[in-house]
Amino acid sequence: MSEYTGEVRKMMIILSKATMENVYAAFILANGARMEGIEAEIFFTFFGLEAINKNKLGHLHTATVGNPAMHIPTLLGGLPGMEAIATSMMKKEMEKLDMPDVLEFLDILKASGVKLWACRLAMEMFHIQKEELYNGINGVISVGEFYNKGTGLGTHMLFV
């Protein structure tokens, strides 16, 4: 490539939450980047680790409490089963749009060349072993190492 004119060349996405909407936002942003010829890497930290935890990634939920855009009163949102209902409704809508589930999405990201990094500190904090993580991850790294991968003109960092 010749002269740099300000275009986005690499997206470094930090996923720190494990609600369905946040995980999908990060995945769609990463996949969308690759589809435009932009590089993408995801750093899974704190609760974001659940999205690559083999035992957890199939059971992500959408939050019904503390999310005004859900338009469910907080008291009702806290009732047992509400999250499950909201989640299954959301999954149905996503299926209509031909959205893959979390595991298939990880496979698509991996095949598309998105690099997947697990945060070492968060793993230690939550007592998670590497064996529990999705097999396609590129490695377990520190924040500093993640920053060092974000070099080059046109690199953007995004916290989800």
Binding site: N31, D98, E104, I108, A111, S112
Partner: peptide, 14 residues
């Protein structure tokens, strides 16, 4: 979509 491609049987994503 990229998902359609992966299920097409014509080519894989890589």
């Amino acid at each position: 979509s990229i998902r359609k491609i992966s299920k097409s049987g014509v080519v894989n994503i890589e």
